[in-house]
Simulated assay, not measured.
Amino acid sequence: MSEITPDLVRHLGVLARIQLSDEEVERLTGQLDAIVDNIAKVSEVATPEVAATSHPIPLSNVFRSDVPGDMLSLDEVLQNAPDAADGRFRVTAILGEEQ
Rank of each mutant, 00 (worst) to 15 (best):
R10F: 02
L12Y: 02
P82F: 13
D22F: 01
V25P: 00
D70C: 13
T53G: 08
S54R: 10
E23S: 08
I35K: 12
S54F: 11
T5Y: 05
L15D: 03
P82A: 10
A81R: 09
S65K: 15
L78W: 02
V62A: 15
L72G: 05
E23R: 11
E76Q: 13
E97I: 00
T53F: 03
P58M: 06
A34S: 13
E98W: 08
G87H: 09
V50D: 00
H11A: 15
D37I: 04
P58N: 05
T92L: 13
I18D: 03
S2N: 11
A84P: 04
A40D: 07
L8R: 05
L78T: 01
A93E: 10
F89Y: 04
A81V: 08
D37A: 07
D33K: 12
V42P: 04
F89M: 02
V45I: 07
S54A: 08
A52V: 11
P48M: 00
R64K: 15
P56K: 03
V14M: 12
V45N: 01
Q19I: 07
D75T: 10
L32S: 05
M1A: 14
L95Q: 03
I39N: 01
E26T: 10
F63H: 13
S43I: 03
V91T: 14
K41Y: 12
M1S: 14
A81C: 07
S54D: 12
M71P: 13
I57V: 14
S73H: 05
S2A: 09
A51K: 06
A93W: 02
Q31N: 10
L74F: 11
A81T: 06
E76P: 08
P6K: 07
G13K: 00
Q99R: 15
E49N: 08
V14Y: 10
Q19R: 08
L59T: 14
T29Q: 07
G96H: 00
H55D: 14
I4V: 12
G13F: 02
V14L: 13
E3G: 07
F89P: 00
A84K: 06
E3A: 06
L15A: 02
L59S: 08
I39R: 04
G87C: 03
I94K: 13
A34T: 12
G13D: 01
G96R: 01
A51R: 03
F89N: 01
P58H: 04
F63I: 11
R10Y: 06
R64I: 11
R64Y: 15
I35V: 15
S73F: 04
L72W: 13
I4A: 06
S73Y: 05
D75Q: 09
D22R: 03
A85I: 12
V91L: 12
S73Q: 12
R10C: 02
D37V: 08
L8K: 03
E44T: 12
A81S: 06
D70V: 09
V77Q: 11
E26V: 06
L28E: 02
P68L: 07
N80T: 14
T5A: 09
E24I: 01
M1L: 15
A34R: 11
I39G: 01
A46W: 05
A40N: 12
D7V: 04
L12H: 02
V45T: 09
D22W: 03
R90E: 06
L20Q: 00
L59D: 06
P58W: 09
N61R: 07
S60P: 14
D86P: 10
H11I: 14
L8Q: 05
V67T: 06
V25C: 00
L59H: 11
